[in-house]
Amino acid sequence: MTKELLYKYVLALGDDALIIGQRLSQWAYKGPFLEEDIALSNISLDMFGRANLFLEYAATLKGDGATADELAFKRNEREFCNHILCEQPNGNFADTMVRQFFLDAFNKLFLQKLIESKDEQLSAIAQKSIKETTYHLRHSSKWIIRLGDGTAESHAKVQSAINNLWMFTDELFESNKIDHEMVKQKIGVDCSLIKVEWDKIIDEVLSEATLSRPENSNMLSGGRAGIHTEHLGHLLSDMQYLQRAYPDAKW
């Protein structure tokens, strides 16, 4: 029973990393300047690396010869349980940076707690990931500040991105049955406990960036239960194309 729950818990963490990694990789050569192309690729690579660790672990828990690639490339939309924020389209640079900032702040706090997990694998992955995420958060929060306090145009764009993406942030702190059980067993993280700190990081950065925090209204959730925005299906059909079109091939 626990193994099945642990599998689902780890799988969700893998999905979060995989989907945001895939989104970031769409920037490839499209950044505002070369140094930023390199930074975005770096973050994308870190996220795929993390996805690989979580999904490999999930595959071991699943057994039956499952592999990380199978989990990434052969599941359908409803079987993906990433947070909806991760799958939101790149939009403009401000949209991408705001999405990243919200996630980085969450990931940093989440991973700090996951290090204490009773599950050695999860703790090890968290220890490796926290270093990367600390850098990611520095990168994204600096951009929020630069864009917020840059020009009138950049201020308007980043504020609009914040307003549009805000409704996906509540979901990060929700707990379902799996989370409850994992918390009870000291394997998982109680996300309700990190909300206060997340709010603090967000408020500090937004205030320095001269940006305002939206009110909570129409907050959406459902990702952990496989309910997504329509964007996810397109992301998957692109990402999974070769594995689906040539099921017998080895790459």
Binding site: S25, A28, S41, F48, N52, L55, A68, Y241, Q243, A249
Partner: peptide, 23 residues
Amino acid sequence: WITRAPSLRAKMVLIAKVQDEAG
């Protein structure tokens, strides 16, 4: 082909390569 690379490993290697080119 980055978004369509057929395995996690292939994807990471290709991203790293394109990143090297930017470098």
